[in-house]
Structures are given as structure tokens and as C-alpha cells.
């Protein structure tokens, strides 16, 4: 096991590459999700305003 993590002396390079890749993938998922939530919230607020306005008329 220790041998596996040592990566034949290349541990810092191999693990930092794979670690950064995991971070970038996770960031992309979170960013896309946040973006969609924001768009949905904006649309929801507009829809609520619209309903309010048509209720007043």
C-alpha cells in the first residue's frame, strides 16, 4: 500500500495532478448547479411579480 502511494518517487506530481482534477470536476458541478438555481430563482421572482400584477388588474 505504501508503495502504491509512493508512486515510484513521483507521488507529489501524480497525486497533485489527480487531486486538482477532482477539484476542477467538483467545482464545475457546483458552479453549474448554482447557476441553474440562480436562474430559477430569478424566473420565480419574475413569475411572482407577474401574478401579483395580474391579480391587481
Amino acid at each position: 500500500m505504501a508503495e502504491f502511494f509512493a508512486m515510484g518517487g513521483y507521488a507529489p506530481y501524480v497525486w497533485s495532478s489527480f487531486g486538482l482534477t477532482a477539484v476542477v470536476l467538483i467545482v464545475n458541478v457546483i458552479a453549474a448547479r448554482r447557476r441553474l438555481q440562480k436562474s430559477l430563482q430569478d424566473a420565480g421572482r419574475r413569475a411572482a411579480r407577474q401574478r401579483h400584477r395580474s391579480a391587481q388588474v
Binding site: A32, R33, R35, L36, K38, S39, D42, A43, R46, A47
Partner: peptide
Amino acid sequence: LQRVRSEVLDRERNARWVL
């Protein structure tokens, strides 16, 4: 696909289907 959904939603902000 999820990002395009956000873009579509923002562009269609006043469309009937969004409401």
C-alpha cells in the same frame, strides 16, 4: 446541458412557458 438550461431560462425570462 445544465448550463444551457440556465442560459435558456435567462434568455426566455418573459416567455409564457417560463411563467
